[in-house]
Amino acid sequence: MRRIAAVAAVLVLAACDSTQPAAAPQTSAPAPAAAVESLPNCAADVPSRVLPEWARTGFSEKEPRMPYVLGERGDIVAIIFGYPLHQPPLPDRSNKILWVSRAPLETGSPLVIEGRLDGVGEVTTREVGGGPGPSIIDLPRPGCWHLDLKWSGHTDTMRLTYQKK
C-alpha cells in the first residue's frame, strides 16, 4: 500500500512540474479563418478587398474586389454595392447589398434579417424573398446595427454601419 501511495505522490509532483508548458484549455472549436474578416466592432470603414472564392459567382474578374462584411460564423457575406450605407438613403444611390451564402440554400426560403441598433432595444425586421441575393436594405436610423440573419435553416450574425446623410 505504501508503494502505491509513493508512486501516486511522484505522479502528482511530476504533474505539477512548472518546467513543462501547460496546454491552453480549449473551450470551443476555433472560428473559421474567414470569420476573422467580420466587423465585430461595427467599423465605419469597410475596405474593398478580394471576395472569398465561394462568393464570386457572377463576377467577371478572377479576384473581384468589393467592400463586404462576412458573417461572424463565416456562412454569409454582405457585398455592399451601395457603400457606404446611409440613413436616410442618398438620392442618387441605394443601400444595395448582395447577400451570398456559403451554406446550401433551400429554394424559396427567404433571408430574414432582424436588426437591433446598438443601445436601442427595438427590433427591425427585413426580408429578402427567395433567400440570399440582391437587395435594398434601408434601416430606420443611422448607427451600428447588429443583424441576426436566418435563411434555409442557417443562422449567422454581423454588424453593419449606416451613416447619417
Rank of each mutant, 00 (worst) to 15 (best):
P52T: 07
P142H: 14
A34D: 11
V69I: 15
P140E: 11
T107H: 08
L139H: 11
A29F: 06
D92I: 05
I76F: 06
F59D: 03
I79G: 01
M66W: 07
L117Q: 08
P88V: 12
Q26C: 12
S48H: 11
R65V: 10
K165Y: 10
Y68I: 03
P142R: 06
D138E: 13
L70G: 01
A5F: 04
R3G: 00
E72D: 06
Y162V: 02
E122T: 15
M158N: 03
I113W: 11
D118T: 09
L13D: 00
I113R: 11
H146V: 02
S94K: 11
G130E: 12
P110Y: 04
E127W: 01
R2W: 03
F59A: 05
R93E: 03
V100I: 09
S28V: 12
G74M: 08
K62V: 13
F59S: 03
D118L: 10
S135K: 08
T155W: 00
T125Y: 07
T27P: 04
P21E: 04
I97G: 02
E61K: 14
G131R: 12
P47F: 11
R65S: 15
C16Q: 04
V120N: 08
G153T: 14
S18E: 15
I79M: 02
A43S: 15
R56G: 09
E72A: 10
A15R: 02
R141Q: 13
L85Y: 06
H146D: 08
S94I: 02
L98F: 10
T155C: 09
G108Y: 02
S60Q: 14
V123S: 13
S135W: 07
R73W: 01
D75L: 15
R159Y: 05
H146N: 09
G71D: 05
L98G: 01
A22W: 06
D45L: 11
R93T: 01
P67E: 12
G58V: 09
L98H: 10
Q87H: 13
D75I: 03
G121V: 03
L105N: 09
V50A: 15
A24K: 14
D92A: 08
E37Y: 14
V128P: 13
A6L: 06
R102T: 00
G133D: 13
S48Y: 04
S152Y: 13
I76S: 04
R56E: 10
L117R: 14
E37Q: 14
Q87A: 15
V77S: 10
L147I: 10
G121D: 10
V50T: 15
R116D: 02
G121W: 02
K165L: 14
S135G: 11
I4A: 03
Q26R: 15
I136A: 12
R102N: 00
G121M: 02
E106V: 15
I113D: 13
P47I: 12
Q87F: 09
A78R: 03
P110K: 06
G129N: 15
E63P: 08
T155V: 12
Q26P: 03
G130P: 08
P25W: 10
V100E: 06
G58Y: 08
F59K: 01
